[in-house]
């Protein structure tokens, strides 16, 4: 009784606060009216408008491309960083490396964006690259702020596994690359998947850093949404949010299924 009261009283207000705006947003993406108050009947019109909004769709495709590239890059660099932290007991500059790796987790977006833009401007005048800022510069920036998250996940995973597995493989004569491919990589695989997904969502969500390092002609989805929000929210953006929510829920459901199936196989 006591426990149930704690559950309801503790959770209900917070969950209402978290979910009420989202529920109303989904509901009103189906409203057949321009104004937000008042229900004017069910309609798909905002989804149709979304479908025909070329600028928004192009921006979404660009964002997906950037996010996939950035997540892959961040996973590769983050794997190396996580591996070094978890498996190399001592190396020169470990404290500095740890601090540098933790910095993107606490630095504000505006600072990361400004500093990277200034870097790109400096390299452009020094070595002529990048001539045009766009996808490449956004991807580099996104890799930089998300590789730390991947490193955290990979390090945590490897710290939970026994280094003796790798030592055994090495003692049995496997060269280092073979140990890595046959033992370390499979051990780290779940962390790599969740790290990749985390980096992907961080990239898709980023407005501020992309606004700094992008050039004319390359607008990501958050940049387009932001500029239309400045003109006021429309039901079309509600429809966009609903689509994103549906994709996200579907991805979670699939991931949950895979997890359940895997646990069953292990039993």
């Amino acid at each position: 009784m006591h426990r149930r009261a704690l559950l309801t009283l503790g959770l209900l207000p917070g969950l209402l606060f978290l979910y009420l705006p989202i529920i109303l947003l989904v509901l009103f993406s189906f409203n057949d009216a321009r104004l937000l108050t008042g229900w004017a009947g069910f309609s798909w019109r905002w989804y149709a408008a979304l479908w025909h909004d070329r600028a928004l769709i192009e921006a979404a495709l660009l964002s997906l491309q950037v996010a996939a590239l950035a997540a892959t890059g961040a996973t590769l660099v983050g794997l190396a960083a996580g591996l070094a932290l978890a498996r190399f007991a001592r190396f020169p500059g470990r404290a500095a490396f740890t601090a540098a790796l933790a910095a993107p987790l606490v630095l504000p977006d505006v600072l990361i964006g400004l500093s990277l833009l200034l870097l790109f401007v400096a390299t452009e005048s020094a070595i002529g690259w990048p001539h045009n800022r766009g996808v490449a510069t956004i991807v580099l920036a996104h890799v930089t702020f998300s590789l730390s998250y991947v490193a955290v996940v990979v390090q945590a995973r490897l710290a939970d596994t026994d280094p003796a597995l790798e030592e055994a493989a090495a003692d049995l004569g496997a060269p280092p690359w073979r140990v890595f491919l046959a033992v370390t990589l499979p051990l780290a695989a779940p962390a790599l998947l969740s790290g990749w997904l985390l980096a992907f969502t961080l990239s898709l969500d980023d407005l501020v850093v992309a606004s700094f390092v992008s050039g004319p002609g390359a607008s990501t989805l958050p940049m387009v949404v932001f500029s239309s929000l400045h003109l006021g929210a429309t039901p079309e953006l509600d429809a966009l949010a609903t689509v994103m929510l549906a994709i996200c829920a579907a991805a979670l459901a699939i991931a949950g299924r895979i997890g359940v199936a895997r646990r069953r196989r292990r039993l």
Binding site: G14, L15, L18, Y19, P21, I22, L24, L25, F28, L35, L36, T37, G38, T201, L204, D205, L207, P222, V225, F226, L229, G232, A233, L237, D238, L240, A241, M244, L245, C248, A249, L252
Partner: peptide, 28 residues
């Protein structure tokens, strides 16, 4: 608790604009 996190930062702000506007839900 984490689920709303994945709807996108800007879109969550959008939801609040819809709630808080002069002609929004709360005022309505």
């Amino acid at each position: 608790v984490i689920l709303p996190f994945w709807t996108g930062f800007l879109l969550r702000v959008t939801a609040w604009i819809g709630l808080l506007r002069d002609d929004g839900w709360i005022n309505g």
